[in-house]
């Protein structure tokens, strides 16, 4: 049994020791952030079923409210839907015609078909942004093939990229996070730019060509680079202030529910070695003067660097 004095000393030492441990955790977070985030991901994995249970009543109430609202103005809704259906039918015809034309053109060009990306669909388990970051956790089930760097999209457009992968859960860093940098192409002005998140609803455009400023309202698409394929819809350009172009995302970043994570592979866009860039092995001096060495061999291989010059 400890003496009273020893117990007093111990009681006084507890708080400083705990504060030292907390400082250690802060330092660990600065140096080895993935280790800490791994523990958090495991906790979320463990809690995922409970989260579904907690959110279920809220989802039901939302559905009821939506039904109730729909029931109150059925006639207006009906006419709106009829109008929308007519417009959609027109667009369907246009899309079918364009798809047929596209197929014909590709056939005449001997277009090599692109690989179909693998994807998994997951429900947002938790919004784990905190005050300074924008990220979500997705429950993609066990046995998924998601890798770090895969692309996440919702029904309308690009959402972000996968930064951490757990057994059931993956973490997606959204395009408006402060750490997010996505290479994009502007559809009308054909300029390249970087879309940089700044923790607001609309990420900024930076590093665009100074002689081709982004045009208000033009479409923004991804630029093909490593795991990011080209042509994914991102949003539209908007000038929030003079000389401050931002992207208004197509994806609804505030209310996320179902998200798809695509794996486009990372070895598609590796540039082949250009013939002109291949280092030419040094040829022997005056190879044709005198008898050729090894002339008794049946087939001499071509010298490297001679073809395709």
């Amino acid at each position: 049994m400890l003496s009273i004095h020893a117990r007093q000393v111990l009681a006084k030492a507890v708080l400083p020791i705990l504060i030292l441990l907390a400082v250690g955790l802060v330092l660990l977070g600065l140096v080895r952030r993935p280790a800490v985030d791994g523990v958090r991901l495991m906790a979320t994995d463990f809690m995922a079923p409970a989260y579904h249970g907690l959110v279920w009543p809220q989802e039901r109430v939302t559905v009821w409210l939506m039904d109730l609202r729909g029931a109150t103005d059925l006639a207006k809704e009906n006419s709106r839907l009829r109008e929308e259906n007519r417009a959609l039918r027109h667009w369907y015809d246009v899309a079918v015609a364009l798809a047929a034309e596209n197929g014909r053109l590709k056939k005449s060009l001997h277009w090599i078909p692109e690989t179909v990306p693998q994807y998994v669909t997951g429900r947002v388990t938790r919004d784990d942004g905190g005050p300074y970051s924008r990220a979500v956790l997705l429950d993609v089930g066990s046995g998924h093939q998601v890798r770090i760097g895969d692309v996440a999209l919702d029904a309308a457009g690009l959402l972000g990229r996968v930064t951490e992968v757990g057994p059931h859960t993956v973490r997606v860093l959204m395009i408006n996070d402060d750490a997010s940098r996505i290479p994009v192409t502007l559809a009308a002005s054909h300029g390249d730019a970087i879309m940089a998140g700044d923790d607001t609803a609309s990420p900024r455009l930076i590093f665009y060509p100074q002689d081709h400023h982004p045009v208000e309202g033009e479409r923004v698409e991804t630029r093909g680079q490593s795991t990011m394929p080209a042509g994914l819809p991102v949003g539209t350009v908007h000038y929030s202030a003079p000389n401050r172009p931002v992207v208004v995302p197509d994806a609804d970043l505030d209310r996320l529910d179902i998200v798809r994570v695509f794996d486009y592979g990372d070895d598609d866009s590796q540039a082949p070695d250009a013939p002109g860039r291949v280092r030419i092995k040094k040829l022997p001096q005056n190879p044709l003067t005198g008898p050729l060495p090894f002339s008794w061999l049946p087939n001499l291989p071509d010298m490297p660097g001679r073809g395709g010059q």
Partner: peptide
């Protein structure tokens, strides 16, 4: 103090801010 430490750890695990700040 020990209960505060445990509470801080739980908050740290179930949030995604910079690690250790809430605890400290």
């Amino acid at each position: 103090a020990l209960a505060v430490f445990l509470c801080g750890l739980v908050v740290e695990i179930f949030s995604f801010g910079p690690p250790g700040t809430v605890l400290l």
